[in-house]
Design a binder for these strands. Sequence first.
DNA 1: CTGAAAGCGCTTACAG
DNA 2: CTGAAAGCGCTTACAG
Lengths: 346, 346
Amino acid sequence: MTTIKDIAKLSGYSIGTVSRVINNHPDVSEEARRRVEEVIREQNFQPNSNAKQLKQQSNSAITIIVKGNENMFFEGILERVQAQLKESGEDVAVTFLDEYSNEVQAAIQLCALRKPKGFIFLGGNLEFFRMDFDKIDVPCVLLTNTAADLGFSNLSSFTTNDMDAGYAVIDYLIKKGHTKIGIIGGSASKIGSQIGFRRIEGCRRAFEDHGITFDESMQFEPSRFSMSGGYESAQRILKKNPEITALFAIGDTIAIGAMRAIKDMGLSVPEDVSVIGYDGIESARFSIPRLSTIHQDTDALARKGVEDLLLRINYRHPLAHEDVPFSLMEGESVKTIETKKKRSTK
Amino acid sequence: MTTIKDIAKLSGYSIGTVSRVINNHPDVSEEARRRVEEVIREQNFQPNSNAKQLKQQSNSAITIIVKGNENMFFEGILERVQAQLKESGEDVAVTFLDEYSNEVQAAIQLCALRKPKGFIFLGGNLEFFRMDFDKIDVPCVLLTNTAADLGFSNLSSFTTNDMDAGYAVIDYLIKKGHTKIGIIGGSASKIGSQIGFRRIEGCRRAFEDHGITFDESMQFEPSRFSMSGGYESAQRILKKNPEITALFAIGDTIAIGAMRAIKDMGLSVPEDVSVIGYDGIESARFSIPRLSTIHQDTDALARKGVEDLLLRINYRHPLAHEDVPFSLMEGESVKTIETKKKRSTK
DNA sequence: CTGAAAGCGCTTACAG
DNA sequence: CTGAAAGCGCTTACAG
């Protein structure tokens, strides 16, 4: 193992100077810097990160906490975040959590264990943040939910505007002639913190604006963010409410399960039941039928999240809470219904 | 921060003894052990891993190298490996690589940077291992390919027997009456090291045993392990060889892309073209039609891989090269063809 | 069985 | 601008 000591000896400078070169301290002569860097290159020297971190009292790799094992959407975004971070030379640790577990507690534990430089949360329940996030003091970013109202000084957030997007979905379906619309996914809890809540809240407003009543007990069914969750919830809601002509699954993973369930009930998409998803994952572009969905800009989410975190880890940099734009991608899974009302008004 | 010093003071023992308790050394009195453990619990003390690793000259987290970003199969297995490792209290780092990049070089770099305790390779090109793996000296496990013939003393491997499984697929299709069979996925290279090669080699043998000639140029099309790769390769092979009645995609991700391509060509699965995949990922159970496929036992793969690695990291433990059993899962994507030959022989 | 002490490879005031 | 030295939190011969 080459150490900083060897570099010192070889370059003719002290280990203090070598360390300063490595860490880009300003007060090193050009000559010393050049010489030391040369030796470092020759020896292919890599500083020992354990020693460095021991000394600096900080910290291990940036940690990504993925909340929702089975949610395919997170897989895509995880990859992007990981790629971004690696480009910046940052090491990355990943922890997968069940969709219902407490991500903030998990982060607190990790802090005790290895003091990560920072966290990126992929998905998060605001309720857990409210309860315990004050115990975390490293810079964090929450992706796909907004932390704007929480007021923590070390938590940025980037998300699709779920309220607007939920609104857009229902508005779209209604304009396509649907009025008997079912929603599946997320939990029915009114806490206002679960990932799906804002989406559903947007739906509510759209229904209202169109003068259509939304009966939660008949038109909503909770579901895990998984294909099997979507499969089961679609079956349940369609059985309890056979009038439904369109289903909004608040995640593509759920939607794909739902389409399979509809098929297994002897019905077809979109002829008997239209389905629209949320996320815009790759599988949605290859499913049969192709899934209509809200496309979240994973690239922007990942890029902004990583940039923000890095800036705040390395410099004094202000927090940010931003929405990234979304778009409704039309596939083949929603059909137009000519309603009587429509016809008469035309 | 509580340190080992605090525990020493609080417990009335020296830091040496505390350290021995933490590391389960035998030569500690029962009394000391009890007392120290009590204080550790009270203080919720976590040893500083940087200091520990600095001292032990070893090492950072076990690192999983995922080769093939877009291959959904790896996502499932990654999760399981991760879960297993976490259960054993091991920290985990993940690196995603493109399917065509050099995973061994990547591992070598990581060794220089942070000396991981070990690596788990999800997918691997034996050629790269042959070339450079001797530069890695930590315990490693290769999953989904066999390293039995490589003879490295620090590399175990666990895999489905790709040869047998490839054979089983073709045998199955032929028994279903198909003779014009196309294969997509992997690379055509004869190097014998790519992940898909053994699968295709198994296919060849099955064709031979059934007395059916296999014309690689007309019946094989390479493909990335991605949905879009499958989409394009299916289109290409079906255009160049319209006689094909069944397609074997050597990965489910590829198969799902292929089914979509067939649909877009105005044909349907399985009426016009049968499709069979390989992997048994969850999406295969929810696709329309449900995909027939070789189910790899990801649970066993993950469990055995992790156990083996941990054993070899912590003890002198022999290498292993094992096959895990597979099964052919029938979905809805393969139809039976009544061939003339079949009829006459019956 | 236990303690005192050296040392892992680095960073950073401190003094010059 | 540079060097000598203390110290980060731990482990592990060594001596008893």
